[in-house]
Design a protein around this nucleic acid. Sequence first.
DNA 1: ATCGCCGAGACT
DNA 2: AGTCTCGGCGAT
Length: 690
Amino acid sequence: MAHDSNRNLPCDGDNRCMICKLTPPPEETLTCKTCVTPWHLNCLSVRPQTLAEATQWECPDCSNLISSHAPPSTFTSGSEQSDSLIAAIRAIESDDSLSDQDKAKRRQQLLSGGGSGDTAIDDGNGNGNDIGSGGDNDVLKLISGSFNCSFCMQLPERPVTTPCGHNFCLKCFEKWVGQGKRTCAICRTAIPPKMASQPRINSSLVTAIRMAKMTKSNTSSGPPKPYYSVSNQNRPDKAYTTERAKYSGKANACSGKIFVTVPPDHFGPILAENDPERGTGVLVGETWEDRMDCRQWGAHLPHVSGIAGQSDYGAQSVALSGGYEDDEDHGEWFLYTGSGGRDLSGNKRTNKTQSFDQKFEKSNEALRVSCRKGYPVRVVRSHKEKRSAYAPEKGVRYDGIYRIEKCWRKPGIQGFKVCRYLFVRCDNDPAPWTSDEHGDRPRPLPSIEELKNATDVTERKGTPSWDYDEQKACWLWKKPPPESRKHAINEGVEDGNGSSSRKSRRKTQMSVSERLLKEFCCPICHKVMTQPLTTPCAHNFCKSCLQDAFAGQTFMKARTCEGRRTLRAKKNIMKCPSCPHDISEYLQNPQVNRELMSVIESLQRQTKETEENAVSGEETSNSDQKNDDINDENPETEVMNLEAGESGIEVMQDLKRKKSGDQKNDDVKDENPETEANNMSMEVGESGKL
DNA sequence: ATCGCCGAGACT
DNA sequence: AGTCTCGGCGAT
């Protein structure tokens, strides 16, 4: 951003001055009248001299924005755009019909890209804030500059998007809302109450930012993880046992074939070697339609129960599905409630009311064993968890490995004692909601208020089985994992049909920017979004598609009673095309997500360039198609063809990633850690020659 | 939103 | 064999 010369920086999302790193007391904090950002008075290069100046103070960012577009000295030689911008700002300033707040709001609308508001001045191509205009090729700079959260000035951790099209960190946004603010910090448009109380992560942005970070730091640690959505297409024949289930296409309590070759009591991630179907393993972020599908991929096997585990052995996985109101989700860590204590007599599977105390027995005890031993526990989140910002919108999502650091009992919200568990994330891959490009690092335990009233507190003694290795910089088994007492569900099956099914499910590999553009497809037209809008429920659509979807509908329904008299108009419910949220209020003034739009445009430019390069390179290898048919089993070949320049590195890193976390393997047979990679790269090399 | 059914799968 | 389980469906 534009504050390097004088090095003026505001306070971050935690109210900590970004220059002196201290948290200034209120009397040393100055709030900008325009963007309402707090600044540390002592660290400002130019301070207001009077109280009146202080109350009307505008921060260097806001005042510089105007002057940097057209400083007075260069005013005459300024561009047409700057001229019109200055003229527009002056027009706003001299408009006596506007209050100071309105003026500030309009100024900000103008500077943040205009939007489709009435005062907006468009530069013709809608690129209001294209700060990378200097170098069209410098896409990365553009991306990393475009998405900065206005509070902390960093690329958003867990980005959320306001209906006015502005992006913030979830943490900063929650802090802002927590201060009682109900208007956007950038344009002062009202934040809908639902968004304020239940902000949703904009997952498309997560992908974009993660990629930006990866390329920015030039680590290029391979393409972003594909996020699969496994549908019912692979339901096995044997899945349904009742006529009714067949009819509805969904069994009530059926189970289908398990696709992975891990035993039911397998701990830790499900690795590529246990996934003969796809050869990828279960990746963080993988989402299934329901618990049955989730079960088929081994992430969480019980299809009703929230805990998979055995009291004398340990717990392998848990599901967060909102069944217990005591649960508390903070993403990287959460407080989980044990099972039991509810009257499930009759045919009930769930019951919200608790009628007796929970004890550390059965699966609750299994969790305690995992806590004591420090086993890795897989975690899936269900869309049914409505109170958590980290839950998926739809389906069931694998969120990676957590460890249970402590467990205890306390009186639950309903008065009866519940077993409680502190889960802390420790996965080698980043969580689906974070734009971080790397996995977890060991983090200090959060302080838990309720521990004061806790009984039966259990903490781990000794070293955990699953822990962080500083040398290898990843989480791995420090002690050998518990030996399985069961057989792998699919043992031996892979030899029979492994290759054929792999063939049928072969995924086509795409370049990084192509894959990202796919992330930015509009769910309505299935094309890359133009003028993207982000709804309060965090779904992204083309502006035109979303408006067309509700074309002809009015926001209010006039209700007449047999023509006799007109009743009061009723609000017309307009459901988001992707979820049941009512977005009618949002549709009255939807604002284009400018940052997202500029990223999409940049990616499109990049893809076009890559394609042009690929076309020029194709002439030298005219046997691509043939090659493809023969060598079906080696998906990497395609990577070679598509991303000629960098694919070698990517393949290697991909392999390393597949291997990481597989320390069981390492310990046993790892004489030369590169052997497998070498073999594979030779395969790739040979097939490339075909 | 709530209710009754269905009857998987693991544990006891 | 009985018990338990943070599902999912169609009907109301």
